[in-house]
Design a protein around this nucleic acid. Structure first.
Lengths: 157, 157
DNA sequence: CGCTAATGATTAGCACACTAACTATCTATG
DNA sequence: CATAGATAGTTAGTGTGCTAATCATTAGCG
């Protein structure tokens, strides 16, 4: 009896599943953002794209895709909606007509001011201290790293 | 300078957002389950429903919905697909024709045997110890609790 | 120089996940 | 007992998120 990963009788209990707690936590936290982001006219994924662009713009779709750890195919329609909302611009890069330059409109840039309040507001609403947030953040990064070192998984390029 | 939730200059950095790390972690972990669950013919949400039913069945849609912390509208089509896959049965309760009794087919019940290996396999693939899983699980439950005590949120019945 | 391979983005198709609206059934109350 | 209100599910509509296939453009190599 030396295998630490050996299963016990109730390993299949829903309430014991980390993956379950994780998905519920993710949906719950994103749900808590909703009323706050509604005032900015953004969904949560759209908020992440804007954070991305406030840090640096213009950026290509692939660049944004990498920063958000999502497929270009997911980002593409998302950008189209942000453009329709008037927050971003989408134009081809002169000199490389494949690449899209995703930039901010004046409204998109201005939205940053209102957004500065969001992290503090959320910490407040969730009743978390800066330390707790940092600690949880570290745990999540470790977990993400764990999925990347999964040597059983399909090869990543 | 006593307000612990007062923002700093780089609070809007994508890399500092807990909500971002959380969603990436959730998608990454669920993604790591995919090759394992593929062998059972289940998606991750479907796997959670099956866990739910292996614990107790038959159960109503509302019951399952509550256990998985998801809307009945999300569960409904999911159950339809599980029925089409031959894992569950859906029939109205005699005596209360509103309620659906969601039960297991012989294949659905038999699938549990293969599923018993999943938690161990995943712990292995992610390189996590039982203690790490427990610790992360606790963190997630605390976070979920935090979203529920959000006194600014809309009233919950 | 011309063609093949690689790259960047989009589209198609599927599966969640949510809110709001709807249907069917049951319960409670006058 | 009849009807209003509550309850259980489903459907419609929108927005992710993924894989696979496709299109356009560019880079690389003989």
């Amino acid at each position: 009896m030396t295998d630490v990963t050996a299963g016990t009788q109730d390993d299949l209990l829903l309430e014991h599943q980390l993956c379950f707690a994780l998905t519920v936590a993710s949906r719950s936290v994103v749900g808590a953002y909703k009323p706050v982001l509604d005032k900015l006219g953004l969904t949560h994924p759209q908020y992440l794209v804007m954070l991305c662009l406030w840090e640096s713009s213009p950026r290509s779709v692939r660049d944004i895709s990498g920063a958000l750890a999502q497929e270009p195919a997911t980002i593409s329609p998302l950008l189209r909606r942000l453009e329709a909302a008037g927050f971003i611009t989408r134009q081809r890069v002169p000199g490389d007509e494949r690449t899209l330059a995703v930039g901010l409109t004046p409204q998109g840039a201005a939205l940053r001011q209102q957004a500065t309040a969001v992290p503090g507001t959320m910490m407040d609403r969730l009743g978390l201290t800066r330390e707790q947030v940092t600690q949880l953040h570290t745990s999540m990064m470790d977990l993400i790293a764990a999925t990347k070192t999964d040597s059983f998984g399909p090869p990543r390029r």
